[in-house]
Each structure stands twice: as C-alpha cells, then as structure tokens.
Write a protein that binds this DNA or RNA. Sequence first.
DNA 1: CCCCAGGCGTCCA
DNA 2: TGGACGCATGGG
Length: 216
Amino acid sequence: MVKEPDCNLIKVYETLLTTFGPQNWWPAEGPEEMIIGALLTQNTTWKNVEKALANLRSHNQLSFSAISTLPLPELQKRIKPSGYFRQKSERLKALATAIINAGGLRQLAQKETLDLRTWFIALKGVGPETADSILLYAFKRPLFVIDAYTLRICKRHNWLPSSTDYAKAQNYFSCQLAPDPAIFNEFHALLVQIGKNFCRPKNPLCKKCPLNHLLD
DNA sequence: CCCCAGGCGTCCA
DNA sequence: TGGACGCATGGG
C-alpha cells in the first residue's frame, strides 16, 4: 500500500520556522548582487559563490555594467571558485547585458510576473529555478522556488510521487499557500536548511529530520 | 578514494 | 518526454 502523497504544508512551515528561526534570505546586498549570485550558485555550494562574489567586489566589478564590459578571460578568473567558469562567464555576461539592454531592473519590474519569468527563462543558462529565485528574491513576486533539496524532501517523505517534476512540485506548494512572497521566501530558505542537514541524496529517510511525523 | 553542491543545455531513444 | 551526460571548483 502506497502512502497518499499529501501533507499539511502550513504545519510544515510553522514547524520549520519554530525549529530554525528566520533565515533572512537571500544573502545579498541588493537585487543586482542577488541575481549574479543566483546564476553562480547553480549546482554549486554558496561558500564557493561567496569567493567569486568577493573577487568581483574587490575589483569593483560586482555589477551588471562592469560584468557586461568585462573580457571573458578576466570574468572567468574572477568567478573560477564557483565552478563551471567557462559556461557561467558567458551566461553571466549575457545576462548582465540583456538586463541593461532591457532598460535595467526598474524597467523589467514593469512586466507582469509570468511575462518576466518567460523573459528570464529565454536567456541561456536561466532555467525555472534560477528564474523563480530571481523573481521571488529580487522582484518580490510570489513564485515558489523548487530546488533539488525541496524536490528530494517532498519525495522522500512521500508528500509527492517520485515522478514529480518542477512544475508539479511548484503547483503543489502554490495551491496550499497564500501567494505571499515573504512566506515563499522564508519557506524555501528553511527547506534548504533541512536539505543540507537531513536529506542527502543517497541516504534513506533521516531519523533526525524534524519533518518526520507531520502527515495529517 | 568517493560523494556532494541552492542547475542547465544537449542529445538520444 | 524523459533519462543520461558534461560542465568544474572545493569541502567533507
């Protein structure tokens, strides 16, 4: 008998918030830095991204304008610690240039949420998670971010079947929660915290995970 | 030594 | 449409 894929997400959120406290995400000084970090942190630990961001900052290059005019070899040197530096340097430079050509973040913020999401996803190197992260954390739009941790947590706790993809998982969260960017922000950050500490890829269900026994 | 990290694009059945 | 694979540095 397979357990029904269901769970009280509001209860999950309250439990996590009580257990871990507010996470105060995204760890960036502003939307520009947030967006740069979002690209660099793809499949990469934030610790390594911080080194790349520090390199850019110390050279006064932590901005779209600087990155858009930076020669690729120099940009690669700066972001090397964050991995995939050949791919990411091209994609980051193209992203910075595209934002500038679109009139900057102020101009982009005029777009409707789903149009803005489509605009970002059209850029090479920006997929659903990166786009949703940017929209939630830089533009304050109520899109729930589904990362590898979130998907793994949902499946391992049997909230969702193993066939669940990004869109289905996002729908699962969106349908149960009020579309409040502040809640989405905090919830996603808390799930990352759980993922790092209690939900590794090859391990079975972790006994110490605070999410155990939360089914209705 | 192996595993993992706050993904994405490409290729192929 | 979905599953493999490459991309790359750095830490446990």
